[in-house]
Structures are given as C-alpha cells and as structure tokens.
Amino acid sequence: MSTPTLTRSEQVAAGTRIAGTPTDDRVRLRRLGPGRRVPGGILLGPVLLLAGWVVGSATGLLDERTLSAPWTVLETARELWADGRLQDGLVTSATRAALGLGLGVAVGLVLAVVAGLFRLGEAVIDGPVQVKRSIPSLALIPLLILWFGIGEEMKVCTIALGVLVPIYIHTHHGLRGIDSRYAELAETIGLGRLAFLRQVVVPGALPGFLLGLRFAVTSALLALVVVEQVNATSGIGYMITLASSYGQTDVIVVGLVVYAVLGLAADGAVRLIGRKALTWRRTLES
C-alpha cells in the first residue's frame, strides 16, 4: 500500500525515519535561529578571500602589475618593516584613528545622553547632528584646514566628526528604547538621577551604543584614509600615495592590508566587548 499510513514495522522495513530515533530531522528543522556558532567563524570570509588571491597569483590569473602576489607583498612588508617605515606609518595612523575615535565617541555619547534625557537637549542637539550626517567628512576638510591648518588637529577633528554621528544616532536610539516601566520602577524605589543614569540608562543604552561603536570604528578608518590622502606627510596613507606615484603596487597593497587588519582587529575588539558586556541578553546572537 502506498498510502502514508504505514505501520511502525513497515516503516522500519522501508528504511524510513521514525520519530524518536536519533535520525529524526524535525527537531533540527524547527530551529529558526542562525544555528550554532562556527568556531573562528569571523575569520572564514577573509581566509577564503586570501585563498582566492593566492590561487589567482600562483596560476597567473592575476597580473603582477595589477595586483602583486601575496608573497611579494609579504616580502615588501618585511623590507618596509626592516627599514622602519611600516612601523612609523602604522603608529602614526593608529594614533590618529584612536585619538579621533576617542574624541568622537566621547562627544557623541555626551550629546546622545543629553538629547535622550532632556527634551530641550534633543531640540537643540538632534537637528545639527542630522545636518552633519548629511555632509561627508571629505566636504568639511577645506573648512577644517582653514581652522586648524594641515596638522594633526585637522586630521583628528575630521575623524572625530565622522565618528560622532553613528555613536550619537545609535546610542540615542538605544536610550529612547529603554522600557518606560523601568523608569517607573526607579521612581518607586527612590533612585536618584545619577543612580538612574548609572543603573538603568547606561546599561539599557549599551546595546545601541555598541552597535554605534562598530559603525564608528569603520567611520574612523574611512576618515583616516581620506585625511591621509590629503596633505599628509606621514602615516600609512602617505606611504600609499607615495607608492602610487612610483607605481609600486606591492607597497600599495601592503598599505591596504594594514588598513584591513586595523579594521578587522578593531571590529573584532568591539564585538568581543559586546559579547562580554551583553551576557544578560537572550537573543539570536548568543
């Protein structure tokens, strides 16, 4: 009989799966989440990309003048490291990015908290931040050069301005998303303003802030690249610009790889902080 109403023994005879046996598919099919964490999952994509590069260069699919082979890049990196240019550039660039990031995060955070907790603050702050949001950092550079000159202040300020926006937007959003019932609870147990800020507002807005931080790190590196291509006399970007005029593809690639590593490391650090700081959450992430 070919109807689905087979007896248990018939099913066994036909080799079909029976509920309760270890080969039951249904439990697995019912999971709608993204599933288990892949060990070292975050590195999988970059490793595949790298493998493609290696294969392309080895087979000659990638011309040496278009994109240097990974081993050429490694060799160049070793040479640059040996004569000290790579470290110098790296330290200069990383310092710029870190200073700009720190300044931007601090300012964005304060603005978000003030705008989130006070109606007047929101009325004053929100508009200008949205205006800034629609002006690319690159467009502000001429003005900042007039104000600060072409030194480090200009570069740090440009980066900070780029960082401020995502920090503000996501923190503000996270803060406004805090359940108002928690504010009610805080009132019934008599929490003061400062304690409310520390115990309820800050932890409640933390998920939003950390998301903003991830965007901010990317913004900082983007702005770093921009300011280093304009009027820089040091840093990774300067190294790249110089290499470009001499046609040194390998040096350019070294610079790009350094940017990539910086970005990946920073994003990884933020994710790690997030996972440690948000253990209380029960989401698809964990």
Partner: peptide
C-alpha cells in the same frame, strides 16, 4: 517607606538577581 510589586516582575534584565534586589 512604600514598596510596590507590579504584575510583571520588572527586574532589570542587565542586572543579576541579587543586584536587582539591592538596586539603589
């Protein structure tokens, strides 16, 4: 000294149980 118990427990999800109890 007035305390209130709500229909929902209203524990802060980002604080462990003891920290919720001694909140403030």
């Amino acid at each position: 000294k007035v305390s209130m118990v709500f229909q929902d427990s209203r524990l802060l999800p980002w604080k462990r149980v003891l920290d919720n109890v001694v909140l403030g």
